[in-house]
Deep mutational scan, measured.
Amino acid sequence: MASDGVVVEIGKVTGSVGTTVEIPVYFRGVPSKGIANCDFVFRYDPNVLEIIGIDPGDIIVDPNPTKSFDTAIYPDRKIIVFLFAEDSGTGAYAITKDGVFAKIRATVKSSAPGYITFDEVGGFADNDLVEQKVSFIDGGVNVGNATPTKGATPTNTATPTK
Rank of each mutant, 00 (worst) to 15 (best):
S3N: 02
S3W: 09
S3R: 08
S3C: 03
D4M: 03
G5V: 06
V6E: 11
V8A: 05
V8S: 11
V8G: 07
E9A: 07
G11A: 08
G11I: 05
G11C: 13
V13I: 11
V13E: 06
T14I: 05
T14A: 11
G15L: 07
G15P: 09
G15K: 13
V17D: 13
G18P: 12
G18Y: 04
T19C: 12
T20N: 07
V21W: 04
E22K: 06
I23L: 11
V25F: 06
F27E: 06
F27N: 15
F27K: 02
R28K: 11
V30S: 14
P31V: 15
I35P: 01
I35V: 04
A36V: 06
N37D: 02
C38M: 01
D39C: 00
F40G: 01
F42S: 07
F42I: 02
Y44A: 11
D45L: 12
P46K: 11
L49Y: 15
E50F: 09
I51M: 02
I52C: 07
G53V: 05
I54G: 02
D55I: 06
D55K: 08
D58R: 12
D58S: 10
I59A: 13
I60M: 07
V61G: 06
D62G: 12
D62C: 15
P63Y: 13
N64M: 08
P65I: 06
T66G: 08
K67V: 09
K67F: 10
S68I: 14
S68R: 14
D70P: 03
T71R: 05
A72Y: 00
A72D: 00
A72W: 01
I73R: 10
I73K: 03
Y74V: 00
Y74F: 02
P75H: 03
P75D: 02
D76V: 01
R77Q: 06
K78A: 06
K78R: 12
I79E: 01
I79L: 03
I80M: 08
I80Y: 10
I80H: 10
F82L: 03
L83S: 01
F84P: 00
A85T: 07
E86Q: 01
S88G: 15
S88M: 07
S88F: 14
G89H: 01
G89Y: 03
T90K: 05
G91L: 03
G91K: 15
A92G: 12
Y93H: 14
Y93G: 14
A94K: 04
A94H: 02
A94P: 02
I95Y: 03
I95K: 01
T96E: 13
T96V: 12
K97D: 14
G99E: 12
V100N: 06
F101G: 04
A102I: 09
A102Q: 03
A102M: 13
I104A: 08
I104F: 15
I104N: 01
R105V: 14
A106W: 07
A106H: 09
T107H: 10
T107N: 06
V108P: 09
K109W: 06
K109F: 15
S111C: 14
A112E: 08
P113H: 04
G114N: 06
G114Y: 05
Y115C: 06
I116M: 03
I116C: 08
T117L: 09
T117S: 10
F118M: 15
D119N: 05
D119L: 05
D119F: 06
E120Y: 03
G122T: 00
G123F: 00
F124E: 00
F124T: 00
A125D: 01
A125H: 00
N127T: 02
D128V: 05
D128F: 05
D128Q: 06
L129G: 01
L129K: 00
V130L: 07
E131K: 01
E131I: 01
Q132F: 03
Q132T: 09
Q132K: 08
K133N: 08
K133E: 05
V134S: 08
S135G: 07
S135M: 03
I137R: 12
V141I: 14
V141K: 13
N142P: 12
G144Y: 13
N145W: 12
N145Q: 11
A146P: 13
T147C: 13
T147F: 09
P148C: 08
T149R: 11
T149H: 13
T149L: 13
K150T: 10
G151T: 14
G151K: 14
A152N: 10
T153P: 12
T153H: 08
T155N: 09
N156W: 10
T157W: 13
A158N: 12
A158G: 13
A158H: 12
P160A: 10
T161H: 10
T161N: 13
